[in-house]
Simulated scan of single mutants.
Amino acid sequence: MTDETDTVREKTVRALYAAYIDGRKDIVAAMLAEDFTFSSPRDDHIDRDAYFDRCWPKPPPFEGMEIEYLGLAEDQAVVRYRAIKRGGGAFRNMETLRFKGDKVAAVEVYFGREA
């Protein structure tokens, strides 16, 4: 993996979280591989359509996401973030993102606790 690839992937990860806060499905859809899957304690390898239906409520539920850790290795990224809820409260989660080329092929979410 080149430093250039890491830089592109880091920018993609940061842009994905920013787009989520802004409710910009159009931006995120362009970042995802056609065979994208999403997993969490509530979802088991759901596809793109189910991901957008289940995980993108309107209005967006968060007013901010602070990336506290972002690590890249080979075709994966690990992210720990603090999500700030609209109306108060916050929590931390960790996610792994797997890339296929310059697209996000899979996201796995590990729920954290209130922060």
Rank of each mutant, 00 (worst) to 15 (best):
E114Y: 04
V78H: 10
F99T: 01
V104D: 04
V109A: 13
F38G: 03
P60M: 10
T37V: 11
V28S: 01
R48V: 08
V109G: 08
F91S: 07
A15V: 04
V78C: 12
A73H: 14
T7I: 05
R86Q: 09
D43G: 05
A115W: 04
T96C: 08
K103G: 05
F62W: 15
I21G: 00
D6T: 13
E4Y: 06
G64F: 04
G71T: 09
K58M: 12
D75F: 06
R113H: 12
L32M: 08
Y110P: 02
Y20Q: 09
A29H: 05
D49P: 00
A29V: 06
M31K: 03
D47Y: 07
D53K: 15
I27T: 14
E95H: 15
F36A: 04
E114P: 05
R92Y: 11
A50E: 15
F38Y: 15
L70V: 08
R24Q: 11
E10F: 03
E4R: 12
T7K: 14
F38D: 05
A33E: 04
I67A: 11
V104F: 05
Y17M: 06
R24E: 12
S40C: 09
K58Q: 14
A50N: 08
D26E: 12
K100W: 03
M1T: 13
N93C: 07
Y81M: 11
E114C: 00
E10H: 10
L32Q: 03
D26Q: 06
A15P: 04
F91C: 04
K103D: 11
Y110N: 12
G88R: 02
Y110V: 11
A18S: 09
L97D: 05
T7D: 10
A106S: 13
A29M: 07
T5I: 13
T12L: 07
A90E: 12
S39Y: 12
Q76C: 09
Y69S: 12
L16D: 03
R42T: 11
A30M: 02
L70E: 06
I84Q: 07
